[in-house]
Nucleic acid binder design. Structure first.
Lengths: 203, 203
DNA sequence: TTTTAAAAAACGAACATTCGTTCTTTTTAT
DNA sequence: ATAAAAAGAACGAATGTTCGTTTTTTAAAA
């Protein structure tokens, strides 16, 4: 009779996805052929297509992978943390997500670029940012309520700004190899917290 | 006898480059074939190859195009401006560069992604940021000398931060169609200036 | 325990297209 | 008449995907 796999299948699929990420980060989606993938993963074409029905499907899976990774990371964030500590924790998550497998960085950037010409990807990313923004706004609003963060700017605008700054940092890390992510992200946290902390707004 | 073109040639080349940018922004470098370009530009393969020796060459030309555009924009920046006004002016330049031809945004993002797998592009971009950073540091140092800007952070770090924030903003504009660049970039200038202005550092 | 049947998993040659580029030819403008 | 400019057919290589075949794995039958 058959083989009673299920989680085994999912596990293998996950492993394949990770390997694909490495390949894509090195050569780019559209420069990496299915043949390239097969060779690198030691799998045949037919084998690979059992796990992902198309190249597109792999791309979508990568977006969702990153999305869920961030969701679960965010869920571990205690509401009791100060604004600064929340930021520090988020930066640490970014460290962990984006440097334990350094390749994700480049793939994530590629996905953003892809979204300009790929409506499906665009929709996935937009939705990712929507929920991500929401969560960050919660943190900001709590900090503002506690008066440890200036209320000069709306939570939505601040969230947008912070996300952009870190997206830009990620971009920079891909482009400039001399950037030390650890040092820079710490600098960024310092700047943001210093710049947003509450001082009896004497402007 | 020959045709005495020269600037005519350069002019046509520039026009072709602009049209390529539009095409690439809609479909992406690697999804846009030379045939696609030829059809869209109403030119033959042989004709196109007279202006650019390869697809790569077009990409390089786009990077350099953006680079020189920013260089000339920066050179118009008066040293007498306050820090805030300098930022406002820079944001206005970004507005002008990135919204008069909205497509450049997406292409610029693609170029960043490309740099991860294309050493030549990576080198071009790295060099672009190097000179861009230098110029911004000048502005920051002047503002710090005038004591209208906190000296809590080094000019290099601040420059890095500001560039990242605006790169991230650009990225966001590509990904999220609902973003109003005008409003957001103004918010960003407000945040940065508020957060970096000099108050007798009572921390 | 060994055999066996059946299905899942993996393989890899083959498919029709499409790719970037070249090259010969034709047109255009002096 | 001459040479630059444009054209577009043609090239081999490479693309994503399919599909018939082989291998492996499993659990019931012997």
């Amino acid at each position: 009779m058959p083989k009673v796999t299920l989680e085994h299948f999912a596990q293998r699929k996950q492993q394949i996805l990770q390997d694909c990420i490495v390949c894509f980060s090195r050569k780019g989606f559209h420069q990496t052929s299915m043949r390239d993938l097969c060779e690198a993963l030691n799998i045949s074409a037919g084998g690979l297509y059992r796990y992902f029905g198309s190249k597109e499907e792999i791309i979508h899976a990568m977006v969702e992978e990153d999305h869920t990774q961030w969701l679960s990371a965010f869920s571990t964030l205690s509401p009791d943390l100060s604004f600064r500590d929340s930021l520090v924790a988020l930066a640490a998550m970014a460290e962990q997500i984006y440097t334990t497998s350094r390749e994700i960085n480049s793939v994530w950037l590629q996905i953003h670029a892809e979204s300009a010409s790929n409506p499906t990807v665009q929709k996935l990313i937009e939705q990712h940012y929507r929920s991500f923004s929401k969560m960050l706004e919660q943190v900001i609003k709590r900090a503002q309520a506690r008066r440890e963060l200036t209320s000069h700017f709306s939570a939505a605008v601040l969230a947008s700004f912070i996300i952009s700054a870190f997206d830009g940092l990620m971009m920079r890390m891909v482009v400039d190899s001399t950037v030390s992510s650890k040092k820079l992200s710490r600098d960024f946290v310092n700047i943001i917290t210093q710049l947003t902390d509450n001082r009896e707004d004497a402007a």
